[in-house]
Amino acid sequence: MGDDEHQHDFQEAGSGASATYPIQCSALRKNGYVLLKGRPCKIVEMSTSKTGKHGHAAIHLVGLDIFTGKKLEDISPSTHNMDVPNVTRNEYQLLNIDDNFLSLMTSDGGTKDDVRVPEGVTGTNLCSDFDDGKELLVTVISAMGEEAVVSYKEAPKCMYKAFSQSFCIYFFDAHIFTLL
C-alpha cells in the first residue's frame, strides 16, 4: 500500500537517484535507514509482534532522525511497504567559514557554500579548529534534499592537497558500496 504515493524528485539525492525507494517492512534491518513520520532515520531498534491466526506480524521501529538525532517510532504491518531514503555521505575539504556557512571544495574543484555550520559542540569545535589554522575535512550527509555536517576531522598532513577528491558512499539496505 502506498507504493506510489511518494514520488519525490530531489536532484540533491545524488546520482539522479530518487529521494526514497519502497521496501517491504519485513526486509528492513537495524542500522539501515527508513522514513519515520516523514523524517529520514537510522533504525536503532526493531521488534516483531507475536501474531494471531493470520500470521501477519507488526513491526515496531525505533529510529533516530539522521539530521536532528530525534527519536522517532512507528508500527507497521510486516507486509506493508516503507519508504527508505537514499542517504549519501560526502567528505569535503573546508576552505572557509563565512557568516555561519561553510565554504567547501567539491570533487570537481568548485566550491559549495550552502551548508551551515553545525549546531552544538561540533560547530563550536569546528570553528575554533578552523580558526587555529587546521586543515579540516568535513563529512556532509544528505537525504531528502536536506544536508548537514555530521562530523569533521583534521586532514592527514601533506596529504590533503592530493586528497581533495570527495568520497561518495551510498548505502543500500544493509549493503555498502564504496565508490572512490
Binding site: 521488534s47 507475536k50 501474531t51 494471531g52 507488526a58 508500527i75
Partner: peptide, 15 residues
C-alpha cells in the same frame, strides 16, 4: 477484538 487491535497502536496481539 482483532478489528480493534488492527486499528490501535497496540503492538502485541498475543499479549
Amino acid at each position: 477484538d482483532m478489528f480493534e487491535y488492527e486499528n490501535s497502536q497496540e503492538f502485541q496481539y498475543a499479549d
